[in-house]
Amino acid sequence: MASNIIKYLIVMLVVSVSAHSFGQKEWDSIKVIGNNIGEKSMSQKSLIEVFRGQKNYWETNEGVLLILPSDKHPGAGIASAILYDMSISEMQKFWLAMVFQGRTNPPVFELNNADILTIVSETPGAIGILINYQGQIPPELLINIQ
């Protein structure tokens, strides 16, 4: 019985190894902004972990508030693919389920880049992504992704 369980676990782990990688082109189309999060640069891996709800607080003691493009945002598909390896619809379902579990707080979904920029600039602890954004970004908000 115990050996069968161990074999089952090993098979499960082997089957579950999958890579989630996206090209540099998609990453170049986004800019990450954060307000008093205590970090000016972040790895792609860390950013993905944050946006998947795995971090609740920054080193600055501010609570993490995720600002995501809503399904009406023209760049929503890029965000869902880069950050979640999902379609927009799957990303919405992911967050509906996460909030229902009660293990993380809900993100804020905004319609456009201007609204994302506004709410991040007004909310300490907020982190958001701008997609294909050509406007000015206050330097204190910009987070470099490595």
Binding site: L9, M12, L13, S16, V17, S18, H20, R52
Partner: peptide, 8 residues
């Protein structure tokens, strides 16, 4: 949760 989507 050793992998994204996996929980034991």
């Amino acid at each position: 949760k050793p992998q994204y989507g996996t929980r034991i």
